[in-house]
């Protein structure tokens, strides 16, 4: 019976995310991707292989999780840190509504700052040949949802959310995943790659370590469980004793 969206919470969250320095950080990574795409196209011409490597190796592997960390944790962690969350919590408002609203905002920001630049970069790189740009844009969109939920949870439970988020994004997803085969099964990146693999043409050479049905189940489970638990934690949030 709780509402799934509160416009005031959304407005405050958008302004926190898109105001100040955060917007610059959010913009810098997509800008870098576009610069790389233009440079590669200019120097090497149209090359499907380069497109797959840039969109898979940089955009999906690094840019999407990083933007997910900034948007997901940024949607709630600063408010918990400086105590301003009390103004949301001391209202006749279901705390699950607060979490859900913040999730929508984090998803919206992450999707906007990842799928659009990936699509544009893909068009620049090879004109969406073999559906590579579409495949990675869809994968980024789906990954954005899961990352937003996971990092929103992280922002709710930990004071060092950004650090843990970066460790996950950079070490687990990028490094650990390539060294330890098992780690890849538990990777948002691999789950979303399974989707990209399906969308792109066979010649695109996009492969995931996870089968598509498994990937979809894992994506849904991470999103739903992450959001549910974040709601529970916010309902039980206590004020630290400052004294």
């Amino acid at each position: 019976m709780s509402a799934i969206y509160n416009p005031t919470v959304a407005r405050l969250t958008y302004r926190a995310l898109l105001g100040r320095r955060r917007a610059l950080i959010l913009l810098s990574l997509p800008a870098l991707l576009l610069v790389i795409a233009v440079a590669v196209r200019a120097l090497a011409g149209v090359d499907d292989r380069a497109a797959t490597e840039i969109l898979g190796g940089f955009a999906l592997a690094s840019m999407v999780p990083l933007i997910g960390v900034i948007a997901g944790t940024g949607a709630i962690a600063p408010e918990i840190d400086d105590g301003s969350i009390v103004y949301l919590l001391s209202k006749p408002l279901d705390r699950r509504t607060i979490i859900l609203t913040k999730l929508w905002v984090a998803i919206g920001v992450t999707v906007a700052f990842t799928t659009v630049p990936i699509l544009v970069a893909g068009l620049i790189l090879n004109g969406n040949s073999q559906q590579i740009a579409t495949a990675f844009a869809v994968a980024a969109g789906v990954a954005s949802i899961a990352y937003s939920a996971v990092f929103l949870l992280l922002g709710t439970v930990s004071r060092n959310a950004v650090v843990f988020g970066l460790v996950y994004a950079l070490i687990w997803e990028a490094l650990f995943g390539s060294l330890v085969p098992g780690a890849r099964t538990l990777s948002v990146q691999q789950w979303s790659l399974a989707l990209a693999e399906r969308i792109a043409a066979d010649g695109a050479d996009i492969t995931s370590d996870v089968a598509l049905p498994t990937a979809v189940i894992f994506l849904a489970a991470a999103t739903v469980l992450g959001t549910w638990y974040a709601g529970e934690r916010l309902r039980a949030l206590t004020m630290a004793n400052d004294e």
Binding site: D81, D82, V86, Y87
Partner: peptide, 9 residues
């Protein structure tokens, strides 16, 4: 509340 955090923007 005693704490100062209050959406300064």
């Amino acid at each position: 509340p005693e704490r100062e955090g209050m959406y300064d923007y």
